[in-house]
Structures are given as structure tokens and as C-alpha cells.
Design a protein around this nucleic acid. Sequence first.
DNA 1: AATGCCTCCAACCGCGTGAAG
DNA 2: CCTTCACGCGGTTGGAGGCAT
Length: 232
Amino acid sequence: MGRSPCCEKAHTNKGAWTKEEDDRLVAYIRAHGEGCWRSLPKAAGLLRCGKSCRLRWINYLRPDLKRGNFTEAEDELIIKLHSLLGNKWSVIAGRLPGRTDNEIKNYWNTHIRRKLVSRGIDPTTHMPINEPAPVEEATSTISSSGVANSKEESNMVKNGISTTNIEKNPVQERCPDLNLELRISPPYQQESLNTTLCFGCNLGIKNTEDCNRSDGELISGSGSNLVVISLG
DNA sequence: AATGCCTCCAACCGCGTGAAG
DNA sequence: CCTTCACGCGGTTGGAGGCAT
């Protein structure tokens, strides 16, 4: 049995948003706040699916968005974070206030990828293009996409392997100025971590009074494993 | 001016995940 | 446990606009 559609497609608009639709969405969210995207279109009088509304708000209409060109500093931060996290655009976006995952993803694909190639760096592996790709060491290092496979992570945890024990971190070798501390914690350590982390910090987005994690640390990963990354 | 190609980015699609029942 | 539902994420697409010929 397949997943039921998120909305009744026959009665929803698709494609570019009109000014009127934008206004309706903004007005509704100002009045009622974000959330409950499934029921929002009907309540706001929009012939759109909730998913589309959410995307429009997050990527375009949110008042805190910083529109305009990326700075050189942002470029470099994206490159460093991508070398560490891979295509975890939402996590990367969490470190760039006012930028969205979609925006960063597009910017990566259109600008940074090319920039790295022109520097002679493979944008996927972040290694020099003319050097042979390193032999896959999935169980001991971050994979070529920059993200450890979750099943492999699970196996590592099951087998009692912690990345804390990894002696050489290839990312840190590539980015010596980036203070990175990688730690994939087995489930039994989660409790102590969770007691100090609010939801926002878990997403690497913000600190709240609910937690005492100092700024400059973000949490990546989900499920039973957490990756704690310190950014210097 | 017309045409074709290229670039960029907003939006869509499908899937994974966690919560709820 | 299993199923269903809603949300969020990452990959991909399509069209508008810019540029070259």
C-alpha cells in the first residue's frame, strides 16, 4: 500500500506563487503562527497543498531571511561545513543565519561547486582532483559524501565502535583551522546529552534557556546516534 | 531582431522519520 | 508491535531571464 497523497491534487494550484497567495499566507502565519501545514491552506483560503505553503514560507516569505549575495566568509563556511557534513543542507543552513537549506543547496550547485573545481578540488570529496580517491573507509571515517552512512553508524555503535577513537580525522586534516570535535554517541550516552539539550540546539539552530550548551556547538544526526561538532 | 544555449533558483516530488493511536 | 499521519529533508525539474551568435 502506497503513501496517500499529502493533499487533493485535483484542487490545488501548482507552480509559481502569485502576490495574492503570498499575502494570504503571510497574513495567516502572522495571525496564527507556523505549524499544522496540512490544515493551513484551507484555513488561509489557499488552493495549495500544505507542503507547498511550508516551502514558500521557509524559503521565501520568512521575515528573517537574508536575501542577496553570499559573502566570502559564508562561502568558506559552507565549504568547510560541507566537507564535514556532506549534503546536510538543513544542518549547514542552521549555521548560516538568514539562509535556507534550499538557497544553500542551489548556491552550492551553481557557484561553490564550480569554484572548488577551479581550485582543483573535487567538490564531493574535498580532495585534490588529480589525487586518486582514497580507499573507502566507511567504518572508520566519514564517507566520501561527508556523512557516515546511518546503517554503518548503527553497526559501529552495536559493535561498540566510537568515532571518538578515530585517530585521524580527514576533515580536520583538510580544515586545520576549523576546530572540530566529532563524537558519535551510543544510545546509552544519549540520556545525559538530552538532559542538557533543547530541541533547537538539537537542530543546531539556537540556544534557549532550556539548555546550557555553549554557542558554537551544533548537533547533527538523528535516531540513536548523535554527532557533536564544535566549531572554533 | 531572432534564435538557441546556458544559468539560476523557485518549486515539486519522493522518501525517511518520529509521533500518535 | 503495527499502521497511519504529518513534517522535514535532499534530489531533481522546469521555466524565466541573460547572454552569445
